[in-house]
Design a binder for these strands. Structure first.
Lengths: 125, 125, 125, 125
DNA sequence: GTGGTCTAGACCACT
DNA sequence: GTGGTCTAGACCACA
């Protein structure tokens, strides 16, 4: 189960916010393999947004193999996609951290502030 | 002085990449107060992009008080680069951390791995 | 609601005139918080100018926190229009008074005549 | 006699700042009819700006009949230009006050603040 | 449908 | 030479 919420002022598109929350849900174990998500229509109504926006979020996660859609039945959490190999993984980690840190630095954040913020969110991933 | 580079595949608009690099230059001390930036024309040629794209980046930073322009003379690093307001700063930090964590989570990295990697790079920022 | 009009002979750029009229609308209460502005396309057609010119006006006010935009949805009056900082405000007041007085002086008006005229119009602002 | 000063951060072009200061000087009686202004070259050196910028200021005031240039001799304050007729004058006053007040209002200044600021500068015109 | 980005090219204002 | 404004038109991203 998962409760969705959208922040219109975050600058992050709605479809991405939804996709992120599902990803977090999977990573944190809140969403179990095989669990059914709300229908596109139901979630659109609940969040008071356009139906296409929800569909786009689901579609993106389906492409990434996080979700599986069964025509006429619903959308379900799929078995975890295969992980990267160990050295690939380390390279990727280095890459995304570099990217992230350079953006953060350009806004004047210190590494201390960043680690602090990420630690606060440990539960999420 | 500062060397600009654009990554057309990052999904980040050119003008934003330029602006970010200038912000980073200021934050890191590479760009000193009063220093003149390349002319819009020169930078446009160097980066092989349109003049208006560079102008847009400079304009945005001028509105945000990072830069000062004197028509007919050039564009300069502002005497008093602005501090973000505290709530603005927190919002920005939350936003970029969310974005980062969502990417990291989708690769299956744990928060422990991430904090570890970032701690290793403390020196860089 | 707000009716826009452009004076091509004023010497003030179109995008600035649009931005000023929106600022005025907000300051005077004609534009309420959360109210949607005309779409960039609609306003461009109405004013018979290029779409980018309207977009530039909106963009500037968005950077200054007067407006908020939601891509795909529209442009709205910001929930908390920013107060200028006190020194900024004083600088602006000095600047526009200087400009005005220099014009008035060149027509030979005395400060008495000017204050008189402005006092008569107190009600308007 | 008159002492010139330029504010690069006012947003007002140098040539206009110079012209305004001369106008003020004339209106306030600091500059007498027939008095000689600094040469273009001398003023450019004094203000550390381009020679053409000073020339432009003088040129503009010459066109408006505030100054007279005698080839090879220098630039002088001319006899006051003829004033507008009374009804023309009132119309002009109304027009420029309207324009000014609407700009001021759009920045959120009250009529009280404006009158205050203008009163402070009574001496200037 | 909405706004965002970018280009190419013109012309203007200022130094 | 510098930056500023505007146009026309294309293509993308989002709801």
């Amino acid at each position: 189960m998962i409760v969705f919420s959208l922040d219109p002022r975050s600058g992050i598109p709605y479809y991405k916010q939804i996709a992120d929350q599902i990803r977090f849900g999977i990573a944190s174990g809140n969403l179990k393999v095989g669990e059914q998500l709300p229908t596109v229509r139901a979630l659109a109504v609940e969040l008071k947004i356009n139906l296409n926006t929800v569909a786009k979020a689901y579609k993106e996660l389906e492409l990434l193999k996080f979700l599986e859609t069964q025509q006429g039945t619903g959308t379900f959490i799929s078995a975890r996609p295969p992980e990267l190999q160990e050295d690939e993984k380390q390279k990727k980690l280095t890459a995304i951290c570099s990217e992230f840190l350079s953006i953060a630095a350009s806004y004047g954040f210190t590494s201390h502030e960043i680690i602090n913020e990420i630690s606060k969110r440990k539960g999420n991933i």
